[in-house]
């Protein structure tokens, strides 16, 4: 089964993949918003999504490390990796302390900032082209790019908010 969805927030995406697993659909592949699912036992897997440190870093090292601790790398999309663990093998949370959770959100913010700059540059190129030519198709693209840029900006804000919440927990623990 293939489903099309656009997620900007990986936490929401994780929840959805878990819901799909509970309905008996195991996530297998991701491509440009298209999610491929295979039948599975309802609730068989728990999913987590992680962001690799860099583009071409030691993917093999990462995958073999995860394999060693009972976690399967299902698919990779750019720097994003989809991971799963059988529910019978216990709870699955990639980041378990406040420090590493904050590190992850910081990494995501830095990654999204690059994406945002690229989108905004494209937006202005399209905007100029639309104004100069009055072409409707270009205009549609401009609006689309604007919407994507805004969505990315919103997730950056959300990540910043999450870091703030985590820092409050950290402070109250001390």
């Amino acid at each position: 089964m293939i489903k099309f969805k656009l997620y900007y927030d990986k936490d929401d995406e994780e929840v959805w993949l878990r819901e799909m697993s509970l309905k008996g659909w195991a996530f297998k592949k991701f491509f440009m918003g298209f999610y491929t699912f295979e039948p599975c036992e309802p609730g068989e897997y728990n999913y987590q999504i992680d962001l690799l440190d860099n583009w071409n870093g030691n993917k093999f090292d990462y995958a073999s490390f995860m394999d060693g601790v009972g976690v399967e790398v299902v698919d990779q999309w750019w720097r994003w990796v989809y991971l799963r663990k059988k529910a019978v093998d216990g709870p699955f949370e990639m980041y378990t302390d406040v420090e590493s959770k904050i590190d992850l959100y910081r990494k995501i913010i830095n990654f999204l900032k690059i994406a945002l700059v690229i989108e905004v540059i494209c937006f202005f190129i399209e905007l100029t082209a639309t104004i100069q030519t009055g072409n409707l198709v270009l205009g549609i693209f401009t609006v689309l790019l604007g919407a994507i840029s805004f969505a990315i900006l919103k997730v950056i804000w959300k990540c910043k908010w999450k870091i703030k919440q985590l820092q409050n927990i950290e402070r109250s623990n001390q």
């Binding site: 987590q48 995860m66 378990t96 590493s100």
Partner: peptide
């Protein structure tokens, strides 16, 4: 009480 997540351990 402390069960490290794979990502936390890998980063550390």
């Amino acid at each position: 009480r402390v069960v490290l997540g794979p990502g936390t351990l890998y980063g550390a």
